[in-house]
Write a protein that binds this DNA or RNA. Structure first.
Length: 895
RNA sequence: GGGCAAUUAGCUCAGUUGGUUAGAGCACCUCGUUUACACCGAGGGGGUCGGAGGUUCGAGUCCUCCAUUGCCCACCA
């Protein structure tokens, strides 16, 4: 496109005219790909690498505003670093999201009329359905990410479930298996009856609900009463735990009671002493159900002599172990039956209504049962062979001292407080159950070979006759059958920063160049799921950190502070917003008023505001487009306002650069916005209309477009194009920071600004006809600093500046060196003006008094730093001078 | 029960290491058909920075306690 004439350019920026086309041009240019940037000479081959991995969105559906915010953060960082000349990679991807996706597809199938999709379709059939859904959703997602303007390298797109990632997952599994860090064990796990699968502790959502706390005795001759909210599980009790020092029960410790509870066979309850029991709570005794309680299972680890009886089965009904009377009943039916039994036999001592938190499956929604099963686990407390440390140790080191005390291998967390939260979480971390019984996911790379059945002796002997093989690929030979289970989706997510870069090939060029990655961002709700697992996997397998910096953001809420949710129906599709207001406006709105780690609100008011800003920038460029003459030229300052705008520009360049380096996105946006609108548009451009220093105006605009580009890539690139440039702004260089401050210009221009504002204020106060030009005379000890700006002042304040004049006038004291007389002959009455000046004088006197008080305090002079004292003294002098002048004016007005 | 945040103008929020008389956007009031922009311009009103103590020459900023709201963790059986 050629250089557009200013009147060819529409008055309002229309995002629809530009966004798709610009994105396509960017993408086709290949500059999203760091290798292309080097080939085309945009980036030096030895440039510093910068890499950021997109947290892969789940292929469960469409993206929401939260994703839009994340993409904006990542893309802003990416574009900034690309402009800094770094070898920049923003790698996109998608997550197969095991449970989440399968449960979504199953729900859809049920809604479409199926009763039990797993049965009706079988493993392969269901997987096929899920694959179709995932592919569909993947393409929607990538379209949305493009629409957000994300400058990611699509040629490197990674999927957590593609061949390269399967290789990484299996390699990692085998490595951990060989190191004894992955084991198969019979332990209690969280079991979702509805989903027919395990879930990890972190996949539980604790929901508060009312419950009844029953206090009862197992039988009349049992010496201790215990309390529970889950009476039906008491059929699996094998012990009662008391505090070892509790005088009430101390003598009973070690005894075993056979108690008849109306089930098939009596319970065998042993009294044990355990430090964890709180003797002051309830009866001071705990009925121990090792099979159906995580903490009780832990008690059994400490007291292996007690039994383990599972009374709830995987279908959520009572087992035969619970006794004939209960077997087959649902837990609720069993509860009622057991309570009825206790009542009949006068064993129930107390019923209390309490609220309790129950763990529910965050995917399937049902209350999770704790059930003992054989599952695969990652051992977090086991020493890693040859390293003398556990996985937990590594996870701690990575964010505190750095791995092995090496600060180069330390991850910095923003905001810092999440470091403490993370460490606290590690303290409570148990072995991680990684096996799932769902089908959509990485199949556990373990194969079993049963012995040949003609040897009857072996089969019945029940001893280690099954061969086990763990490997990256299936073993050779006949008769091997792969483990039916799949892996927790976070297992593959944990490898994300390196499985995407070529690992396990540690010689892969991407891996060597871009790992550890530079920057990561994520929502606070995912820190434990994901950040912790990435750190675990990376420190274990590669002995380094996954990323150098992680920025944690809060949750995006609606304008009333509510979460966005399907059930509330308050969801907003980012694409709708960007279609209506433009992607740039959306991006700005998502970064505004946000502080790290805290939730933020999204409202259409905000987007409207940012849209208006984008339009303002557009019109600034339209104004610049009205200038004639060559676009090149040294930006030589010729006036005070030139010096001011250049000085301020270099200052905000430094500030913006600093804010970006510290991920203070909101401050960066605010800095740029305020400069663009308040300084550049409202003052400098208005002055340019009389001073016409085109070179400076163009220089400022050009620099400003670069500074804005990482935040609002589309409109800035569009402006670049209307200017007739054929070089992408996307690969332009980030502005240099100048190191020669011109602070004098800032102060002097401030006085000019105050002068103009004061005159405008006079007009408003006295309701002076806006079209009437006023006469003004200026006086100063040193007029030199402002004379060059007379035309500007005359235009901005609509005045004519003269030497002196007679007649009624308002006296304005601008500073200690500049004051003005504004002719008000026949415009205002003297009395009103005296009142106005009187007010101003009173204010100055009040301020002077407070400054004097401060200075006369002896300890202020003693203890405050020299600079502060001098500054305060200067302020006082200025204020006193001003007060003097005002007093003079007041006197002259009364004559 | 433990931990972590938040509490600043009517609303939504900034305020980097304690240092000029606390800011922005929206909303509000007054004025304006100035040739970049009404998705605009000019001017203005509005806050004892949740409460109470404390440290300091000086506190929105640091400490203690309290209140309210939110989040995270935790199977008081």
């Amino acid at each position: 496109m050629g250089n557009m004439e200013p009147n060819d350019i529409p008055k309002a920026y229309d995002p629809k005219e530009w966004e798709q086309r610009l994105y396509q041009k960017w993408e086709e240019s290949g500059f999203f790909n760091p290798d292309t940037c080097i080939e085309k000479g945009v980036t030096k081959p030895d440039a510093e690498p910068f890499s950021v991995l997109m947290p892969p969105p789940n292929v469960t559906g469409v993206l929401h505003l939260g994703h839009a915010m994340e993409n904006t953060i990542m893309d802003t960082m990416t574009r900034h670093h690309r402009m800094l000349g770094d070898r920049t990679l923003f790698l996109p991807g998608a997550d197969h999201a095991a449970v989440a996706t399968q449960s979504r597809v199953e729900k859809n199938l049920v809604a479409a009329g199926m009763t039990n999709p797993r049965q009706e379709l079988g493993r392969e059939g269901l997987l096929e359905k899920i694959r179709e859904f995932a592919d569909d959703s993947k393409s929607t997602i990538t379209k949305q990410v493009r629409a957000m303007g994300s400058s990611c390298d699509w040629s490197r797109f990674a999927y957590t479930f593609d061949d390269a990632r399967v290789l990484a997952v299996n390699t990692m599994f085998k490595k951990m298996y060989d190191d004894g860090l992955i084991y198969k064990g019979y332990r209690v796990v969280n079991w979702s009856v509805k989903g027919q699968s395990t879930c990890s502790d972190d996949e539980l959502e604790h929901i508060e609900r009312p419950a009844t706390l029953y206090t009862f005795r197992y039988s009349t001759d049992f010496p201790i009463s215990v309390a529970t909210t889950r009476p039906e599980t008491k059929l699996g009790d094998t012990a009662v735990a008391v505090h070892p020092e509790d005088s009430r029960y101390r003598d009973l410790i070690g005894q075993t009671f056979e108690v008849e509870v109306g089930a098939a066979k009596p319970l065998s309850i042993r009294i044990i002493g355990d430090e964890e029991v709180d003797p002051t709570f309830g009866t001071g005794a705990v009925g121990v159900t090792p099979a159906h309680s995580q903490t009780d299972f832990d008690i059994r680890q400490r007291h292996p002599e007690i039994g383990l009886v599972a009374v709830i089965g995987i279908d959520g009904t009572m087992t035969a172990e619970a006794g004939a009377r209960y077997a087959g009943l649902s837990v609720l039916e069993a509860r009622e039956t057991f309570i009825a039994y206790l009542r009949e036999n006068d064993l129930l001592e107390k019923e209390e209504d309490i609220t309790q938190n129950v763990g529910t499956s965050d995917r399937f929604g049902d209350v999770v049962e704790v059930i003992p099963m054989e599952q695969w686990f990652v051992a977090v407390n086991r020493e890693i062979p040859g390293r003398g440390k556990t996985l937990k140790d590594l996870m701690r080191e990575a964010v505190t001292t750095g791995l092995d005390g090496d600060p180069e291998r330390k991850t910095a967390i923003t905001p810092e407080r999440f470091e403490r939260i993370y460490l606290h979480w590690i303290d409570h971390l148990r072995d991680w159950c990684i096996s799932r019984q769902i089908w959509w996911g990485h199949r556990i790379p373990v194969w079993y070979k049963k012995p040949t059945t003609d040897n009857e002796q072996l089969t019945t002997s029940g001893e280690g006759e099954t061969e086990i093989y763990c490997g990256v690929e299936a073993p050779d030979g006949e008769g091997w059958e792969q483990d039916q289970d799949t892996l927790d989706t976070w297992f593959s997510s944990g490898l994300w920063t390196f499985s995407t870069l070529g690992w396990p090939d540690t010689e892969a060029s991407d891996f060597k160049t871009f790992h550890p990655t530079t920057f990561m961002q994520m929502g606070s709700e995912i820190v434990f799921f994901w950040m912790a697992r990435m750190i675990l996997m990376t420190s274990y397998a590669i002995d380094t950190i996954p990323f150098k910096t992680v920025y944690i953001h809060g949750m995006l809420r609606d304008k009333d502070g509510r979460k966005f949710s399907k059930s509330l129906g308050n969801g907003i599709d980012p694409i709708d917003v960007s279609t209506e207001y433009g992607t740039d406006a959306l991006r700005l709105a998502l970064l505004s008023d946000v502080t790290p780690g805290n939730d933020s609100r999204f409202s259409y008011d905000k987007v409207e505001n940012t849209r208006n800003f984008v339009n303002k920038l557009w019109n600034i460029s339209r104004y610049a487009g009205t200038m004639s003459g060559p676009t090149e030229g040294e930006a030589v300052p010729k006036s005070l306002s030139d010096r001011f705008i250049l000085e301020k520009l270099s200052r905000i360049t430094a500030e913006t650069t600093g804010h970006l380096a510290e991920q203070r996105f909101s401050l960066a946006v605010e800095t740029l916005r305020s400069f663009t609108w308040d300084d550049f548009a409202d003052w400098y451009i208005e002055i340019h209309k009389v001073e016409r220093n085109d070179a400076v105006l163009r220089h400022v605009l050009d620099t400003l477009l670069r500074l804005w580009h990482p935040f609002i890539p589309f409109v800035t690139e569009a402006i670049r194009e209307t200017q007739g440039s054929d070089a992408f702004l996307m690969i332009a260089r980030w502005p240099e920071i100048s190191d020669k401050p011109d602070t004098d210009a800032t102060a002097s221009f401030g006085e000019l600004r105050t002068l103009v504002t004061r005159i405008r204020n006079l007009r408003a106060v006295y309701r002076i006809d806006p079209t009437k030009r006023l006469t003004v005379s200026l006086s100063s000890k040193d007029m030199g600093f402002i004379t060059e700006s007379f035309p500007a002042i005359e235009k901005l304040a609509r005045v004519d500046i003269t030497e002196t004049f007679d007649g009624a006038a308002a006296e304005l004291v601008v500073s200690d060196r500049l004051s003005a007389r504004v002719s008000l002959e026949g415009v205002i009455d003297i009395v009103a003006e005296r009142v106005r000046i009187g007010k101003e004088l009173a204010e100055a006197q009040r301020y002077a008094t407070s400054l004097e008080a401060k200075l006369s305090n002896p300890s202020f002079a003693d203890r405050a730093p020299e600079q502060v004292v001098v500054q305060t003294r200067g302020l006082l002098e200025e204020t006193l001078t001003k007060a003097d002048e005002l007093r003079g004016h007041l006197t002259s007005l009364s004559q």
